[in-house]
Design a protein around this nucleic acid. Structure first.
Length: 285
DNA sequence: AGGATGCTCAAAGGACCAGA
DNA sequence: TCTGGTCCTTTGAGCATCCT
């Protein structure tokens, strides 16, 4: 006899409620029906799930194993039902995204515009943090998607390259870049710092003078604008700042420092339809 | 039409509990 | 300790529905 999902459902319900009566009540059937269903389930599995004795309801070890391990089947079935139903309806719902303030500030606005045009019923919930925070959010499931600017490896996560490019060394548009050994504004863990040291050492035969170490490219832009030093930022940020100037003497140096931007998630098969839709509107590399 | 399946109903019987 | 009530499960008969 083939395993019947209804029988399994009755059994799980009875096991959780601790008796046939409660399960019968929960499913609006008679106790007898529950009893028969469990008998048939046992028959199809070829083992006893209950210790059958009068006035007692006790699971065998096979029964306990079945209860512990079959819940995911019903969750998967519910998930499939939702997915199948939504195939015929407009994509809607919430997408949780963890990313950096740079991405949120410079890239998300145009992405959101595309998303709202194509999928007006999708809501985007964004949390901001550093790379470790973003990876943690995605791994824990608190965020379905993450966008990171990092060339590290994200163990346990799938990643897709969104864009890559080089850095530019900037200073204030009002300040004439005539200094030979400027003070640098850098971020602590972002790509480029170590490369900067190496390339700078090779070119100027000395260590770069780090003026300020700050965890934000936006802060570097502001500080560079105020004349506090020069800073390397990913070139795409330049499009949004007219008051900064690229230092021609360090242009070559900046081009040698590369950044990569990835979207990360726990696996394509685990994504909701709305997350899939979000990935769809992301610009190709 | 007949078999398979799933259900209800009624009856039987064991375990537990309170009261005499 | 005995008895009766209650709760629970199991079993068998019979009915409805679906499928071949």
């Amino acid at each position: 006899m083939e395993l019947n999902l209804n029988h399994l459902k009755y059994f799980i319900s009875a096991a959780k409620a601790g008796g046939l009566g409660a399960s019968a009540k929960a499913h609006n059937v008679s106790q007898s029906a529950i009893s028969q269903a469990i008998r048939k389930l046992e028959e199809s599995l070829g083992c006893d799930l209950l210790i059958h004795s009068r006035n007692s309801f006790k699971l065998t070890k096979e029964g306990e194993y079945l209860v512990e391990n079959s819940e995911s089947i019903f969750k998967q079935i519910d998930f499939l039902k939702d997915q199948i139903q939504s195939l015929n309806s407009e994509v809607a719902g919430r997408v949780t995204l963890a990313t950096s303030s740079t991405v949120a500030q410079f890239l998300l606005p145009s992405l959101l515009k595309d998303l709202k045009t194509r999928y007006p019923k999708i809501q985007l919930h964004v949390t901001i943090g550093d790379v470790a925070f973003i990876v943690g959010e995605v791994k824990s499931g608190r965020a379905e998607l993450g966008i990171v600017i990092d060339d590290g490896h994200f163990a346990g996560l799938e990643r897709k390259l969104l864009r890559e490019g080089s850095f530019a060394c900037i200073t204030s548009a009002e300040i004439k870049a005539s200094f030979k050994k400027p003070e640098f504004l850098v971020t602590r863990e972002s790509p480029g710092v170590e490369e900067l040291r190496q390339v700078y050492k090779k070119r100027f035969h000395s260590e770069p003078a780090i003026g300020v170490e700050v965890e934000s490219w936006e802060a570097i832009v502001s500080m560079a604008q105020m004349g506090l030093g020069v800073g390397f930022i990913p070139e795409f940020i330049l499009d949004y700042h007219s008051k900064v100037k690229v230092i021609p003497q360090l242009e070559e140096l900046g081009k040698k420092i590369r950044y990569k931007m990835y979207v990360v998630h726990k696996g394509a098969h685990q994504l909701s339809r709305q997350a899939d839709a979000f990935l769809e509107v992301l610009p190709e590399k």
